[in-house]
Amino acid sequence: MAQIFHRSTNFISRLSIYGAVVIIGALGYALYAIAMSPWYTDQNVKRQQPVPFSHRHHAGELGIDCRYCHTSVEKSSFAGVPPTQTCMTCHSQIWTNASMLEPVRASYRDDKSIEWIRVNALPDFVYFDHSIHVAKGVGCTTCHGQIAEMPLTERAGTLYMSWCLECHRQPEKYVRPKSEVFNPYYEPPSAGEQLKMGKKLVAEYNIKSLQTCSTCHR
């Protein structure tokens, strides 16, 4: 009986096997690259807001504490977006003619909410609580990035579950002294020092490495 396949088809079969591996690999990588890209995660994407509020100016240059506006961050799951009254505390007296601030004045005058564009949002099936994080030595900038350098606010992390778990698995890598939680210029010590200090703080603050599903999915 004659050969069904010519010898040259050996090459083709090898090529298809190895080629398939390469293509599946490349597809996987492409999917991963897309999933991690700012285009998909909104990480480091600046949002246009009704008023171009600058954290760099307020929290950075002026040195206003985070809690001055985000008043509920220590006692609630939600850090709190300030009411217009908080803006007007200062802006009833300074920059009163700035056209940039007209939406703020209009909001105060007409009792209408300023519709800020949400920057950090989690899916509804994720429970997150700010108060416990700041109470256990997780700094604002650990998740929100160099907020004091942001003229327009952007999302600093991917907000993926893996991103949360990085810290939940090894809190000692990220924890800082409680006195530095609200310091936007805090710089962690070198990796080795951080680990040493982190282990001490984890024990001192009784930080649990919570990784059960129901910690966040409840």
């Binding site: 939600f78 709190g80 977006v81 209408k112 909410s113 899916p123 509804d124 099936f125």
Partner: peptide, 18 residues
């Protein structure tokens, strides 16, 4: 499940005039 029929803090609504 991402967008559940509930209101999170400050979420806007069409239901009330304001």
């Amino acid at each position: 499940m991402h967008v559940q029929p509930k209101y999170l803090p400050y979420e806007p609504t069409d239901f009330f005039a304001d």
